[in-house]
């Protein structure tokens, strides 16, 4: 895979700009969602485009495919029958079970947009970043602690 979405949890302010960007672009589909770890953090959840995707394995109609070159796991809207097998198979729970327009909601890393995913472009605090493997290695993620408050953020 050429680039990945990287989450710097220290920076996420829980505004759901990412989710809004996704929902607005994909007509109501929230392909990135949020998890709320009560009292600790807000956690944007996006498809990890797994090396061996269980959603792909579970799909009875081969609507989900993996591009060997880019690593992108995509769902064909035309083939998907809305059986929710992928939603139940996903170990990260990033494919939302409720269907939109009778098909599952699957992140495509905004393959239609040259500049990368819209959730990253919209992210208000810069918590979501679009990085290559080399950039990730050089990037400091999760090393800074923003708050001293044990209650909500990790302690400094």
């Amino acid at each position: 895979m050429q680039k990945r979405i990287v989450l710097d949890l220290d920076l996420c302010c829980g505004c759901r700009s990412c989710e809004a960007a996704c929902k607005a672009a994909f007509k109501g589909e929230a392909r990135i969602r949020h998890g709320d770890i009560a009292g600790v953090a807000y956690l944007p959840l996006a498809c990890k485009h797994c090396k061996q995707p269980l959603c792909l394995a579970s799909c009875p109609v081969e609507a989900i495919t993996k591009d060997d070159n880019t690593g992108l796991v995509t769902r064909s809207a035309m083939v998907c029958i809305g059986c929710k097998s992928c939603a139940f198979a996903c170990p990260f729970g990033v494919i939302d079970a409720p269907l939109v327009r009778h098909i599952s909601q699957k992140c495509s890393l905004c393959a239609d947009r040259d500049e990368g995913p819209r959730c990253v472009a919209a992210c208000s605090s810069g918590a979501l970043q679009w990085l290559s493997d080399e950039e990730i290695e050089q990037h400091e993620v999760g090393m800074r602690m923003v708050s001293k408050d044990l209650f909500f953020r990790r302690k400094a």
């Binding site: 505004c15 809004a20 960007a21 929902k23 607005a24 672009a25 500049e115 919209a122 992210c123 208000s124």
Partner: peptide
């Protein structure tokens, strides 16, 4: 849809209102 412009006030970032 909306497009994110890098040279804007927020460097292309957009909150849920902007995306909507």
């Amino acid at each position: 849809g909306v497009e994110y412009v890098k040279d804007g006030n927020s460097n292309g970032r957009l909150c849920p209102r902007g995306s909507a």
